[in-house]
Nucleic acid binder design. Structure first.
Length: 833
RNA sequence: GCCCAGGUGGCGAAAUUGGUAGACGCAAGGGACUUAAAAUCCCUCGAGGGAAACCUCGUGCCGGUUCGAUUCCGGCCCUGGGCACCA
């Protein structure tokens, strides 16, 4: 195939490389508009960099393991592998019809044993290094289907298929010690100046470094202690109770003699494990009938079991300060627990804790020897006291938790671990550990657990039947693209040539998890000696969602039927405002449900294939680039697509009426044509700037303005020369966005062989010069006039012209001019009163 | 609940980052061409007032800083993304 060769990337140490990567798709069936947008942005950047002369690599592949394949398998009775490979086939055809310049020789699919064998190998290395370990973790358990559910499969606390109330269950799982890299993952964010600020902030908050105090509360009548961490030691003297997880050993022990507590603990097992659910559910607790001993005062405070404390995070116990933490305040209010105010405002302001917790920092009172200290001073004083008394120590804590990579699913990479009859694990030694592909999935239990031919080994040993989290595969694919055929190692020297990725493009929804895991994996691979770079992605562009209007009718039972926007007619009033929407087929009204992310459930998706068939790939690409800046959401509009199509037609017609004579710009041009050239080059300047800052919607605007100006030109040879120059500029500016049309016109007009290898247009600064400039004149900040001033006029002359303007005089008459501000080349503001 | 964004004409948006608010496009209205329609081309297009010149108001809401605020600061409201097993 021709496209294959044009975009084949070879390592060439003599050329500046540019690795442009778009997040690979999950092969769900067919491309959706979100893919089209993502890959158009990536392709525009790749072609732009290529026209700048760089050695560009743009690969594509498939994030092929995942839950939807199992769901499709249940629904259609097709093996996940078969379904996945068929989807890959179809979607690859679609990508090619959109004209994306991929090096298909580097294509990879994560479900290919030649791919996943290397992550199995790496995982066994991590086990040997102690970077991977096993521990119990809580999952959503569907008691009817006897299966683990993803958070997405828990709807209102119930299993999506069975409808059964979901329970929490602790099972043994594999973890990666990402927490060992917390500090480096945080620090290295400073090495990423070309990442969006919001992504950096989100990652920082997610890693969540805090300096606090780890301390031990005693327990009455035992020698045991409770480990507790706090970031607010200054409020320690306000502790009035301690809360432990419902499944904390202390709670379990107490429940043996307390049936009410036992049933409370049972109740806490209901519901899912997601943080959003944990944080928004009603906070409940139950006293254990045990007291904890305050480490400083020695006073006793009651211990509660609480549903919002999780056993698997931290030590499963928290101290509670109702006076200065809102959640603790509400809990204390509910259970009649004492609230103690120990922090007071540093100002004269009177703030109590009767209505709500006082969460600000301030001055300590009611805190014994710490009275009068500020919160900051108290932090150190209390930490020193506890350290001196051996009851606690300062500690840096991270919110980031170790990454649980075990999944109790079939369609994933088998975890390469073998267990002996005693349950001891050892890493596998031969790779790949191949996933059987001819498998029946029925939605109950784990298919691999029902396949002795997979897990049974000699000597009574068994294979692990869990598979990896699919984030595992997507955490290193960017490196494998550099050397997808490396047979002897995970990566080879070619990875050192191409990495890091110069530009990564993908959805904002990946701002935290995927990007953090990929950064982590990059460091794991570096520490394994496979690559040298610290960070995988130098520059990041997070594109917004594709959204569209929704329309529905409500049925008698309250359910809704959703109609596709393509099947709706819109009526507007004389100002163009929408007054009514009707279904085309029956002419009856439908209700507008607002603008939402394109989805099957709201039936507001648009099929890219249909668009390509009707308008061509260039129109679809141009529309997605023009309608919104890449990082904002893009609202679908049929009329907008027609507008993009209209522009390409205008470009085509203008070119068709041109001659291909090579006319140069004469040294002397009439003022009319100097103005035309100034318009062209002003817009070229904007477009060059916008290409660099990746704001492609205004690149297209500038191109449209240039074309509008070219349409105004006359028939003289001088006009034709300006037209030819303008056309050569606009074609190259548009080439990365609409490659097919521009390539055709480029060769047709005799500009060159291949626009892809054409030189990037250069700005002619001399075309921008002007004899006179327009200044805006303001009086007290309000625009009162526009004046023409010679370009070389000095400040005094500009002021004089401004003051002498008739309308300006109207507004300054009778007032004293206090100040005149002149902003060069822009404006004059006269301050008068 | 917590973290992060974003709110500008009828609509998508722009404003080179503190200096003319609304570029470019869509929709709408008027006109030209046509027997007619489509296509194409030309004009109008934030709101209110005024023959006009021009004036007043206007960038989610309230307040502040500044000669000047869509842009900076403080407080609210709404919408969207993420919250560790969707990808």
């Amino acid at each position: 195939m021709l496209v294959n060769q044009s975009f084949k990337a070879l390592e060439d140490p003599d050329r500046e490389k540019f690795y442009c990567l778009s997040m690979f798709p999950y092969p769900s069936g067919k491309l959706h508009m979100g893919h089209v947008r993502n890959y158009t942005i990536g392709d525009v950047i790749s072609r732009y960099q290529r026209m700048l002369g760089k050695n560009v690599l743009q690969p594509m592949g498939w994030d092929a393991f995942g839950l939807p394949a199992e769901n499709a398998a249940i629904k259609n009775n097709t093996p996940p592998a078969e379904w996945t490979y068929a989807n890959i086939d179809y979607m690859k055809g679609q990508l090619n019809r959109l004209g994306f310049g991929y090096d298909w020789d580097r294509e990879l699919a994560t479900c290919d044993p030649d791919y996943y064998k290397w992550e199995q190998w790496l995982f066994t290395r991590l086990i040997e290094k102690g970077m991977a370990y096993q521990k119990k973790a809580t999952v959503n358990w569907d008691p009817v289907d006897q299966t683990v559910l993803a958070n997405e499969q828990v709807i209102d606390g119930r299993g999506w298929r069975s409808g059964a109330v979901v329970e929490k269950r602790d099972i043994e799982q594999w973890f990666l010690k990402i927490s060992d890299y917390s500090q480096e993952l945080l620090d290295d964010l400073d090495k990423l100046p070309d990442w969006p600020e919001r992504v950096i902030t989100m990652q920082k908050n997610w890693i969540g470094r805090s300096v606090g105090l780890q301390m031990q509360f005693g327990l009455e009548n035992t020698t045991e202690t409770l480990e507790i961490f706090t970031t607010r030691p200054d409020t320690l003297m306000g502790v009035t109770y301690v809360a432990v997880a419902a499944e904390h050993p202390l709670a379990i022990e107490a429940s043996k003699t307390n049936p009410e507590l036992a049933s409370f603990i049972e109740e806490c097992k209901l519901g899912g494990v997601s943080e959003a659910e944990m944080e928004t559910m009603e906070k409940k607790g139950f006293p254990l009938g045990i007291n904890a001993i305050h480490p400083v005062t020695g006073e006793t405070v009651p211990v509660f079991a609480a549903n919002f404390v999780l056993m698997s995070y931290g030590s499963g116990a928290v101290m509670a300060v109702p006076g200065h933490d809102q959640r603790d305040w509400e809990f204390a209010e509910k259970y009649g627990i004492e609230k103690k105010q120990v922090i007071f405002p540093a100002t004269d302001e009177q703030v109590g804790i009767e209505q709500a917790a006082y969460v600000e920092k301030g001055i300590l009172k009611n805190s014994g020897e710490f009275d009068g200290l500020t919160s900051e001073q108290a932090f150190d004083a209390i930490a020193d006291w506890l350290e001196a008394h051996g009851k606690g120590q300062r500690q840096v804590n991270f919110r980031l938790r170790d990454w649980g990579v075990s999944r109790q699913r079939y369609w994933g990479c088998p975890i390469p671990v073998i267990k002996d009859s005693a349950g001891n694990s050892r890493p596998a030694t031969e790779f790949p550990v191949r996933l059987p592909e001819d498998v029946i999935v029925d939605g109950s239990g784990s298919p691999l657990k029902k396949m002795p031919e997979f897990y049974e080994l000699a000597n009574n040993e068994q294979r692990e039947t869990d598979t990896f989290d699919t984030f595992f595969e997507s955490s290193w694919y960017f490196a494998r693209y550099c050397c997808p055929d490396a047979n002897d190692s995970m990566l080879d020297e070619r990875a050192r040539y191409w990495l890091p990725v110069d530009q990564y493009v993908g959805g904002i929804e990946h701002a935290i998890l995927h990007l953090l895991y990929a950064r982590f994996f990059n460091k794991l691979m570096r520490d394994e000696g496979l690559i040298d770079n610290d960070e995988p992605f130098s520059r990041l562009l997070t594109q917004g969602m594709v959204i569209a209007e929704t329309f529905y009718r409500e049925n008698a039972d309250g359910s809704k039927d959703w109609f596709n926007p393509a099947d709706i007619d819109i009526e507007r009033d004389s100002k163009g405002k929408v007054i009514q929407a009707r279904l085309k087929s029956d002419g009856q009204p439908v209700i507008s449900g607002g603008v939402e992310k394109m989805s099957k459930s709201k039936n507001n998706g648009v099929d890219p294939q249909d668009l390509i068939n009707r308008f061509g790939a260039d129109t679809v690409r141009l529309y997605t680039m023009f309608t919104a800046p890449p990082d904002q959401s893009l609202e679908w509009s049929e009329e907008g697509v027609e507008g993009a199509h209209r522009f390409l037609k205008r470009l085509w017609i203008l070119a068709a009426e041109m001659s291909s004579d090579e006319l140069g710009i004469p040294d002397e041009l009439p003022e009319r044509l100097q103005n035309s050239r100034r318009e062209i080059h002003t817009n070229l300047k904007k477009a060059l700037y916008d290409y660099e800052r990746q704001q492609y919607n205004t690149v297209v605007s500038s191109c449209m303005t240039i074309v509008n100006n070219l349409y105004k030109l006359d028939e003289t040879n001088e006009d034709k020369a300006v037209l030819r120059e303008g056309m050569s500029i606009v074609l190259r500016l548009l080439a990365p966005i609409a490659p097919h049309v521009t390539h055709h016109l480029w060769t047709e007009l005799g500009f060159g062989e291949d626009i892809l290898t054409a030189s990037w247009p250069q700005l002619d600064e001399s075309a921008l010069t002007q004899d006179t400039l327009e200044y805006v004149v303001q009086v007290n900040g309000k625009v009162r006039a526009k004046i023409q001033v010679a370009a070389d006029a000095d400040k005094a002359a500009i002021e004089e012209t401004a003051k002498s303007n008739e309308n300006v005089q109207r507004f300054t008459e009778g007032a004293t001019i206090r100040k005149v501000i002149v902003v060069p080349n822009k404006l004059v503001n006269i301050v008068a009163n």
